[in-house]
Design a protein around this nucleic acid. Structure first.
Lengths: 335, 335
DNA sequence: AACCAGATTGGCAGCGCTGCCAAAAGACGA
DNA sequence: TCGTCTTTTGGCAGCGCTGCCAATCTGGTT
């Protein structure tokens, strides 16, 4: 037969139908294994598909199908530089790949306006669901999400009201638990070292919970160093050096996350500051390296992969719900 | 007017046209700012869009448009657990977001069969381009990519022949440069510590280049430790402990990447092994923490973000080409 | 041989949009 | 005022597929 297609034109379902000597609907049924068809039809279609190299066009399929929503999910995350978000995606893609649903991603750079623009752009692909990060969004984003007629899942943070489904943990509670831990261990001259809070709202919530816990014990934060830019070990190292220069009397430092804490640990090693004897360090996230350190980092392990998985699981259900996956305080050896 | 839509039905371009008292084509032209239209038409459409909360349906738009290819790119990466790939995506999304093109991603888990399945799945969305990782693929993947009628870009590795465009650096050359560096520094009893090479082919190429460089100097690898599973600081720490137990005489270790090297460094700190006096360490990737360590890690910085950016830039052009972005050896203080 | 329920099949409208083309509306000079 | 050129506009086919419905076929039954 003539396998030769006019170049530039891709093989369509109609081509397959013709090649298989069947109707389009039969081919469609066979390909989706939906409805009934004979064994003979199945074989002929398989043969024609293989011979012509047919790749279905889901653009057309989704457009024609029920509800016109695509087997895609839109995901807006604030960053790819912080391990948290790739981990989230990891849990998500692992769960979704099993169903053959890919993610369309947008990176907002922590900018609510970009988030709104990305949400609109992603919704224009008519995804089955829209996944956002955190609970704080522009009114426009919320309106879009509600009007989009799709399932909306907000990931990571449970401290507040969500649009639809919410999967995460309480950042405030993490901060509080961390604060109580330091207080219980007898630390009294406590400092905080973080990256930009106006940008990373969840770090701000942790800090609020942390300060509240100190307050319960009649304490207050002795010093606070906020570094511009994203979190990183380098930022943590530089930040801790500055913090110690200004407040040499600190006996513990709470970091906005493990990356910052690693930098802080390196600063201590370099300066010969005994950890935790002279200075205790406490992180957040429970990354792999925290456990590999000569003294395992005291930190809080967050269920990042599980958040992604549960978010994927939410897509099938409906109705608002909040899943709090909790967290685990790792005592470690640095605080 | 009746802003009320029958629930469940989303606003369409036809609705906007009716609400604005214009024809569909005029509305389409206004929305895409393509072709000419009057100021009055522009205003009326803007008003109707805002009032009805219209979100265009790109599924339909792409299907109807020229060439029927969507303003999407499909990306298949092997993992999200290794920073390299999020960094790649970071460069990519930064460049593509500017054009309003989102990425549809698939994670293959280093499995060529999954890669093929994902490539097929992504191609079914008729993306403007398909981005793959590395140069080694199933024959089926290559056939799909060629037949898909889309631009194909293979990222990261330039050691071999590509399908279409290739953006990356020579992993073999990285390994060779690393080997020559260690030899030049006078190390002679050199070991290798890596994660699964059968899975991470590029790590294997680096090792091959490394061994070749040792060979040039009349040396051979003294010991090799391959850890199962993905790379991580924990794996690096455990691996180095094993390696040193078996070969206490090693004077340098080449790691498959910085994560492994960090774990190795921690092992040295914990065991009181002087670095680099007693044991030199050499990594790969040039991650942020490498520079923040008390002794900056000797490693090779790879242009991960730039690869993503250049890959995005490739999408507009056509014709096969290879862009070698090179790498930078960072002397550091550990080797 | 006529009949029937169930399995299998094909035709065709239509998903929401764009591209093409022709019609309508302005702009301008004679 | 009229004709001509340009700008603006709307109608409609059709992108590739799915869902619906009616047509056809199958294998018993009577």
């Amino acid at each position: 037969m003539d396998d030769i297609q006019p170049p530039g034109r891709l093989v369509t379902l109609t081509d397959v139908a013709r090649a298989a000597g069947l109707g389009e609907s039969t081919v469609s049924r066979v390909l989706r294994n939906h409805g009934s068809y004979s064994k003979r039809a199945g074989e002929r279609v398989a043969e024609a598909v293989a011979r012509l190299g047919y790749v279905p066009n889901r653009l057309a399929g989704s457009l024609a199908g029920q509800g016109a929503s695509a087997r895609l999910v839109g995901v807006v995350i604030p960053s790819l530089a912080n391990v948290v978000f790739p981990d989230l995606l990891r849990g998500l893609t692992a769960a979704l790949d099993a169903e053959g649903i890919p993610c369309v991603i947008g990176v907002s750079d922590y900018d609510p306006d970009r988030e709104e623009a990305l949400a609109a752009a992603l919704l224009s692909w008519r995804p089955a669901a829209l996944l956002l990060t955190g609970l704080e969004h522009n009114p426009g984003t919320v309106a879009l999400a509600r009007a989009g007629g799709v399932r909306v899942v907000e990931m990571i943070d449970t401290d507040g009201a969500g649009i639809d489904a919410v999967v995460g943990f309480s950042n405030r509670a993490v901060g509080a638990a961390s604060g109580r831990h330091l207080v219980a261990r007898g630390y009294r001259r406590i400092g905080y070292l973080g990256h930009d809070l106006a940008v990373d709202l969840r770090a701000g919530k942790r800090l609020a919970g942390f300060e509240a816990a100190l307050g319960e014990a009649g304490l207050a934060l002795r010093a606070k160093e906020i570094r511009p830019g994203p979190s990183s070990p380098t930022s943590g190292r530089v930040g801790l050096e500055k913090l110690l220069a200004r407040h040499p009397d600190l006996d513990a430092v709470y970091f906005s996350n493990d990356d910052m804490a690693l930098g802080g640990y390196f600063a201590c090693l370099a300066a010969g500051v005994a950890v935790p004897g002279r200075l205790a360090l406490f992180g957040f996230n429970g990354l792999d390296f925290a456990a590999a350190m000569p003294q395992p980092l005291s930190t809080v392990r967050t269920p990042r992969l599980e958040i992604g998985r549960q978010a994927a699981a939410c897509l099938t259900g409906d109705g608002p719900k909040t899943i709090d996956l909790g967290f685990e305080l790792i005592e470690g050896a640095t605080a």
